[in-house]
Design a protein around this nucleic acid. Structure first.
Length: 475
RNA sequence: GGCCCGUUGGUCAAGCGGUUAAGACACCGGCCUCUCACGCCGGUAACACCAGUUCGAUUCUGGUACGGGUCACCA
């Protein structure tokens, strides 16, 4: 069996849709799981929609996700001569023809829903008429001649046998009036010329693939193996499911990165959206592990809804597993930017490690540090630690001078001090910690305990906050 | 609308004729703890529907319903 070769062929739209990235991943894995080659090809034949710098987005994304290509990037706009040459061959062999129909006429063929294909008008032009039109410089396109009867079928690796009646097939355009080829044509030529053995792409091509098969047949080329992937869906607030789009939230790789997700977590999550390993329940995969485990049999036929909650969970797990060095590289600049100088951001970073799921939520998590929140005195009352307002007031009043006299303002010393106070006063440690933590944080849920927070705040701010709390009790 | 594809808990999903129908996220309890989180333990929750084949269907076949895709000088 010859070596497998797959490709990823995005059009440069300026952003990498997450569904597109998943297609790239699967295409990559189909090949790499078998030790094959992977090709990158930029499909930029739409002059109208061309976006400057869009290619960099593609290259960057692939680099960040670890999807590396062995060949390319091939640029289709640089291969125009090739497509023209092959289109001419098709005309000569009678598989394609010139069409001089105007856009207006084409438009008139559509019904009120905008549905309606070409009627094959120019297919029946006489040879002399065609030559005259050509000589007159009338704009033309080149169309593929579809069979009038019978059906065309192929075997898809995921969906099995797919069969379409040929009457459903329109005489699709191969070369546009501007001389550029359509996707329908150039991807077939390129896939063949580049030796692509497995075409891996989204399921939206499932029903148009017979047209491409016919093209292979017309050229006398061997058809590739097709692997169509189920679509990625999104769910809106009303519970309606549809193709994943902006209304569902962040949908591009870059959006996700900006929201604080890690490339590894994104890759891991989307790998599992439509694919499942055989004989194992493994959920965490490195790219190398994916290459080993991946198999076509594990691909799903049904669409998958993108679940931000689960992505978040994956991300939190990846953050937890991050070595401090890597973690600090990301978190420290964020904290530096947000926090006043007296905050011990190194300690804060440690507290946050393991308590954040996405880096973008750091700000809200430490809001209580950045400013002194309004105090809700009911927070002092906690049933588990049996705290009351009176008790908390007592604890704060008695521990304040002790804290003021403490020299080494670190977690261990603080903890020892409060523990000692607990022992001498007979008040449960939990109650002491609760009172101090509420006084210092002024909110019930915090990333860390009382003494850890005081270490982060530093002595001055901690004392100030406790004094404030005490004065509030007296008021 | 024609054609094509799909349908296991809220979500991702295993299953490939006989199972107490896995596992994960989310959710809800409990334990642990100087809070939260982590961790651990436990719980709620699913084979769209109707026929047929079969001793036996989640699994095979057909139909219905629902969902999606596609019918461009976009890819």
């Amino acid at each position: 069996m010859s070596e497998i070769k797959t490709r990823f062929a995005p059009s440069p739209t300026g952003f990498m849709h997450i569904g597109n990235l998943r297609t790239a991943l699967y295409s990559y894995l189909v090949s790499k799981s078998q030790g094959g080659k992977f090709v990158l090809r930029i499909e930029d034949t739409d002059q109208v929609r061309h976006v400057e710098g869009a290619e960099d987005v593609i290259l960057n994304t692939l680099k960040m996700t670890g999807i590396d290509y062995d060949e390319g990037p091939y640029i289709q706009s640089e291969r125009l001569d090739i497509y023209k040459e092959y289109a001419d061959k098709l005309i000569q062999s009678g598989h394609a023809y010139y069409c001089f129909c105007t856009p207006e006429r084409l438009e008139s063929l559509k019904d009120d829903k905008g549905i309606g294909g070409y009627d094959g008008h120019c297919r029946y032009l006489s040879k002399s008429q065609v030559e005259k039109n050509l000589a007159d410089g009338i704009p033309y396109v080149i169309r593929q001649k579809m069979p009038n009867e019978g059906s065309t079928s192929y075997y898809d690796k995921v969906y099995g046998r797919v069969s379409i009646d040929n009457v459903e097939l329109r005489d699709q355009i191969l070369i546009k009036a501007d001389g550029y080829p359509t996707y329908n044509f150039c991807h077939v030529v390129d896939d063949h010329l580049m030796g692509i053995t497995h075409v891996v792409r989204g399921n939206e091509y499932l029903t148009s693939t017979p047209k491409y098969c016919l093209l292979y047949d017309a050229f006398g080329w061997e058809r590739p193996t097709y692997v169509h992937l189920p679509l990625l869906m999104g769910k809106d607030a009303d519970g309606n499911v549809s193709k994943l789009s902006k209304r569902h939230g962040a949908v591009s790789f870059q959006d996700l990165i900006n929201d604080g997700y890690l490339p590894e977590a994104i890759v891991n999550y989307i790998a599992l959206l439509g694919w499942c390993p055989k004989d194992t329940n493994q959920e965490f995969f490195t790219m190398d592990e994916l290459k080993k485990s991946f198999s076509l049999e594990g691909l799903s036929k049904s669409p998958a809804v993108f679940d931000y909650e689960k992505l978040k969970w994956f991300n939190s797990e990846y953050i937890k597993k991050m070595p401090d060095e890597d973690y600090n590289k990301i978190i420290l600049p964020i904290l530096e930017n947000l926090c006043p100088e007296y905050i011990n951001i190194e300690k804060l970073a440690v507290l946050l490690h393991g308590r954040i799921a996405v880096f973008s939520e750091v700000k809200e998590k430490i809001e209580f540090i950045l400013s002194r929140l309004d105090m809700d005195s009911s927070l002092y009352i906690n049933k588990k630690n049996k705290t009351t307002l009176e008790l908390c007031s007592q604890i704060l009043n008695e521990s304040l001078p002790l804290l003021e006299n403490l020299e080494n303002w670190d977690n261990d010393s603080l903890f020892a001090l409060l523990k000692e106070y607990s022992a001498s006063s007979g008040i449960k440690a939990g109650a002491v910690m609760w009172a101090v933590r509420i006084a210092v944080a002024r909110q019930s849920i915090t990333p860390g305990g009382a003494t850890e927070l005081m270490e982060v705040f530093g002595k001055n701010e901690s004392i100030e906050r406790i004094k404030l709390a005490v004065s509030e009790f007296n008021a």
